[in-house]
């Protein structure tokens, strides 16, 4: 198969999967696209939005469009780590001898929907850490691999914070993107009403298998990125650190901790998927700019002043990107700007 054919196949698969999801989900095209980008980049995605915007439905629909095993965990304060990972139970064999047998938890699935993840205690949230990063879990001293591809899609509600545990930074960092699900527009709301109150439910076709997703992930890593585009990604991530010598004023004033190197990885990997989905063979500056907010918004921790003044992290990321680009342009002679 030629490289052009491989890329074309990726584009077709991407669009087909998005079309299947959009049979059910009205609007939210950007969110759907970013979820798919996160999946093909090999990361996990956190969806944040008020109740009723279709976060859970989006993930369920996505799982229906893929020939994957799917688990859903409704996170509650009394959920325990063993409820997620699994535990050893005593079983009796045919000869009447008793022995321990590992009972797999719901984490052993290709797609894991962690619904309202911030309602569980940090201890339980941390049960996902190893699985999300390493692709395996350790129970009773034995490491057990998770099915591949393994894709965690978590949801959380930004309001009704009573009885919630904000995700620890270590866990937030493991999500490649944090997506903010917006409220639908009037036309979209009309379409939602028409679609969901119809007599016949919409059926979603399975358009992709696990091995296909893995092959596409390999293709994503082959996409070349020019050094100046990579440098821009690094500069943007560095500019989120207030102690960096070239950090913009907004960062110095409002940011306590900047994005980790995972932020730069997320930015570049996401940009590669976006480029491929667009039918391009290389990463462009526009790809980075489009994914800067989803990749960095949860990795920037505001300081006291930033929180007190209710600084919008998305706007801050936009300012940082703009400032870095301006700085780069200023360093060039006017003929080359």
């Amino acid at each position: 198969m030629t490289q052009e054919a491989r890329v074309q196949e990726f584009v077709s698969a991407f669009n087909a999967l998005r079309a299947e999801v959009e049979k059910v989900i009205v609007g939210q095209r950007e969110i759907v696209t970013h979820v798919l980008i996160g999946m093909f980049a090999g990361g996990h995605v956190l969806l944040e939005g008020v109740p009723g915007l279709g976060k859970t439905l989006l993930i369920k629909t996505l799982a229906e469009g893929l020939e994957f095993s799917f688990s859903r965990i409704q996170f509650t304060p009394d959920l325990m780590p063993a409820d997620i990972i699994g535990t050893n139970i005593i079983v009796e064999d045919a000869a009447g001898r008793k022995h321990f047998q590992f009972q797999q938890g719901p984490i052993f699935a290709h797609i894991l929907l962690a619904d309202e993840i911030n309602r569980a205690t940090p201890k339980t949230q941390s049960a996902l850490l190893e699985g999300m990063q390493e692709g395996c879990v350790t129970v009773g001293g034995a490491s057990r691999p998770l099915p591949s591809p393994f894709f965690v899609l978590a949801t959380q509600n930004p309001i009704e914070m009573e009885g919630t545990y904000p995700l620890p930074e270590a866990q937030l960092d493991r999500f490649i993107f944090k997506l903010r699900v917006r409220y639908p527009a009037l036309e979209e709301l009309n379409a939602i009403i028409d679609r969901t109150t119809h007599a016949r439910p919409v059926s979603v076709n399975r358009v992709m298998t696990g091995p296909t997703v893995l092959a596409h992930r390999e293709l994503v890593r082959e996409v070349p990125i020019a050094s100046h585009v990579r440098d821009l990604a690094s500069a943007v991530v560095m500019a989120t650190h207030p102690e960096w010598e070239h950090a913009p004023d907004a960062t110095r004033r409002f940011v306590r901790y900047g994005a980790s190197p995972r932020g730069a990885q997320a930015l570049v990997l996401g940009a590669k998927v976006r480029a491929l989905a667009d039918g391009r063979y290389n990463v462009s500056v526009e790809d980075l700019k489009a994914l800067a907010a989803p990749a960095l918004r949860h990795r920037i921790i505001l300081n006291f002043e930033g929180e007190a003044e209710a600084v919008d992290v998305d706007a801050l990321v936009g300012d940082i990107v703009e400032g870095v680009e301006r700085q780069i342009a200023q360093d060039k002679e006017p003929f080359l700007r």
Partner: peptide
């Protein structure tokens, strides 16, 4: 969209991927 700069840079690199030819 950075095609020319990327293609020129990667066509000379020893670690170029198969996608570079297509690029």
């Amino acid at each position: 969209q950075d095609r020319v700069a990327t293609a020129l840079e990667w066509s000379n690199r020893p670690d170029r991927t198969p996608l570079v030819a297509a690029l």
